[in-house]
Design a protein around this nucleic acid. Structure first.
Lengths: 186, 186
DNA sequence: TCTAGTTTTTGACAAATGTCAAAAGTAATT
DNA sequence: AATTACTTTTGACATTTGTCAAAAACTAGA
């Protein structure tokens, strides 16, 4: 069975009919390190469940990469703004470690939402969680020194430090790589 | 009719039955400037629709206020984290201009979500929009100089500059009031 | 209109962080 | 093992921003 389905079933209540229909709509995608799942300018037509590997969402300003978020196992990833509004994505999604994903088409998700109340509810709850997570990250980023940002990361998301190169982490925190390197030296 | 209801009806599709039930559950709240809608430590049991006035969500670190967000007419406001998880709020909600709000109890919202699919959908869509908005704000805050932050605000949310005192705006942007004052002088 | 309270501005200085450039370290390939 | 490419660290210095304190401007109430 897809890891996505067991993940959903162990965290939410969902009927067999919904599960089976969902299963039919999922397409497996395998990508290698440094592939791109999404490119800037592209309209994002799928929601992805990340089964294995890790990715980062970043956008490009004056030739400089700015990492917005990281995705790991059991995360839903996509360029949310593009996926929701069906407008061109401002961000890239870059595969940092070889990845296995399951893609769900926007149209087909809409069908699921229409036909299965429990999926509508599931999606609503997932949004709630993602919203809270983002808000928390935002709060943590505000009015903090570079050292505090690093200590926060160490405390709240240590897996990022273990699996992501320094340059990406620095831009995720909004500080220069050199500063991060010096902080870590201590 | 409540402004909330006409707001919803003009933006979403919603049955009469749902509208009427929702209407029953709404309680009007009137607050004055400098009242608090939510205090830190309090579990937030209501979702509020802001009909008139404006508010800010802030939290306190070492005696210093840090403004997280502003709410204006037609916004849904609450301490989302607390409301969703039913744990004590980390933030205060402070009334900046005399306000009229409509409160919806969490329990009663849950009933609505259970009984009316279109409300479940409505809430899901509202979360999508709030999520995107937050993500956008986050992207704008990252890797920007104080001047760029100010110019961004001027472009994207000029109403904030018109209606909020400088100190709140500075902490919203994550810069000191003095710096913001100097930037604005130019 | 005057007064008291609040908010905003200004100045001087200190501290934190960014930038650029080079060196050191690490990993991947032949 | 040697070469190449990529990532991380280090140093020197410039710039931005924060902090503290005081003055100025603005607001609301008596």
């Amino acid at each position: 069975m897809h890891q996505l389905l067991s993940y959903i079933q162990s965290n939410y209540t969902i009927s067999n009919a919904a599960t089976q229909t969902l299963q039919q709509f999922l397409n497996k995608i395998v990508l290698c390190k440094n592939d791109f799942l999404i490119n800037e300018g592209q309209v994002c037509k799928h929601l992805y469940f990340l089964e294995k590997g890790c990715v980062r969402g970043f956008y490009n300003v004056d030739g400089k990469d700015i990492t917005q978020w990281f995705g790991f196992e059991n995360d839903f990833v996509t360029s949310f703004r593009s996926f929701i509004t069906q407008t061109p994505s401002a961000e890239y999604i870059h595969v940092v470690e070889d990845a296995v994903l399951w893609a769900l088409d926007k149209e087909q998700l809409n069908n699921l939402l229409k036909n299965f109340t429990e999926i509508e509810k599931l999606v609503r709850i997932i949004y709630e969680q993602y919203y809270i997570r983002l808000e928390e990250r935002y709060a943590n980023a505000h009015f903090k020194t570079a050292t505090e940002l690093y200590e926060n990361l160490l405390q709240n998301e240590p897996h990022i430090l273990q699996r992501m190169p320094l340059g990406y982490i620095a831009s995720y925190l909004g500080i220069s790589q050199e500063t991060l390197s010096r902080i870590r030296a201590k």
